[in-house]
């Protein structure tokens, strides 16, 4: 009995995730996401073929064996870390745009009433859609980051597995932004507004992260507190990018714990709010 219930539960999750994939594919989001990622991979391949870059790589390689004026390993690691930042920004922006419509579309009248008539909870429905979104973007992140890793590895002969940490890190920050996309989608049913809010969060996070400079410039304690308060509430997209760069560079002082837990807390709070509102809404 329990086994059959589990099977039925699994089939519900699988159906919801696979439906998100099919919708992303049909709306060309899937192909768009992978197409643009492939474009970046192509640009990267092209850049590595430019004489200056190729020369620099050869130069570093030759010099490192004879006269180590520069550590080739360090050079490649620095390159990896900067590339990871580019991929982080590129991947997160694309992912937010690609997933913005996937929640509002499921809330369309005539579609949602049939979904709600099935023996599943509203929480399962929303979380299934959330998981489907994550899976689509996760696949794209794996494709993009692994491709770049393979290209750099083949080009330099140096394989830095830490670069692959960009996949879970980028996916984590995307999942936090996705929570906001879901909340706005559930409230407004607007894909455009969902994108606006997610992009605004990314930009605000960059501004708020300059807290050490701004706090010195602010003249009152309450305005400093307000700035810091917002800093701690808003997901730390910028800080997390910086932390990712440091982690890839083997920097033991990389500050990733506080950006991680505060961003996770933001995501959990916002997603709980989305679930609460979704459960109470009439369709």
């Amino acid at each position: 009995m329990n086994e059959s219930l589990n099977r039925s539960h699994n089939s519900v999750w699988l159906a919801l995730i696979s439906d998100t994939f099919q919708e992303a594919r049909a709306r060309w989001l899937f192909w768009g996401l992978f197409g643009l990622s492939s474009l970046l991979v192509g640009i990267f391949l092209f850049v590595l073929r430019i004489d200056v870059v190729q020369g620099a790589v050869s130069f570093m390689g030759i010099e490192s064996t004879e006269r180590p004026i520069y550590n080739i390993q360090k050079f490649v690691n620095v390159s990896y870390s900067w590339v990871s930042i580019v991929l982080y920004i590129w991947g997160t922006f694309l992912a937010v745009f690609a997933s913005s419509g996937l929640i509002p579309s499921v809330l369309e009248a005539g579609r949602i009433s049939l979904l709600l008539s099935k023996p599943i909870t509203r929480t399962t429905l929303l979380m299934g859609r959330f998981a489907g979104n994550l899976a689509v973007v996760g696949l794209n992140h794996i494709y993009l980051i692994c491709s770049i890793w393979i290209i750099i590895g083949l080009k330099t002969g140096i394989w830095a597995p830490r670069f692959l940490l960009a996949i879970p890190i980028s996916l984590f920050i995307f999942s936090v932004l996705l929570c906001a996309v879901v909340l706005v989608g559930v409230i407004s049913e607007s894909a455009a507004l969902s994108v606006m809010v997610a992009v605004a969060l990314m930009l605000i996070s960059t501004i708020l992260a300059q807290r050490q400079i701004v706090v010195k410039l602010l003249d009152s304690q309450w305005s400093r507190d307000l700035w810091l308060g917002f800093y701690w509430i808003i997901p730390k997209v910028y800080d997390f990018g910086v932390a990712m760069k440091d982690i890839i560079l083997y920097d033991r002082n990389a500050d990733w714990i506080s950006p991680a837990w505060t961003s996770a807390l933001f995501g959990i709070a916002v997603l709980s709010g989305a679930i609460y509102i979704f459960r109470r809404r009439d369709f």
Binding site: E23, R27, R111, S117
Partner: peptide
Amino acid sequence: ARRPVGYLPENHRFPTY
């Protein structure tokens, strides 16, 4: 309670994909 129910809504919008 909804497991034994089959439902055809009015103005349905089945996923066209």
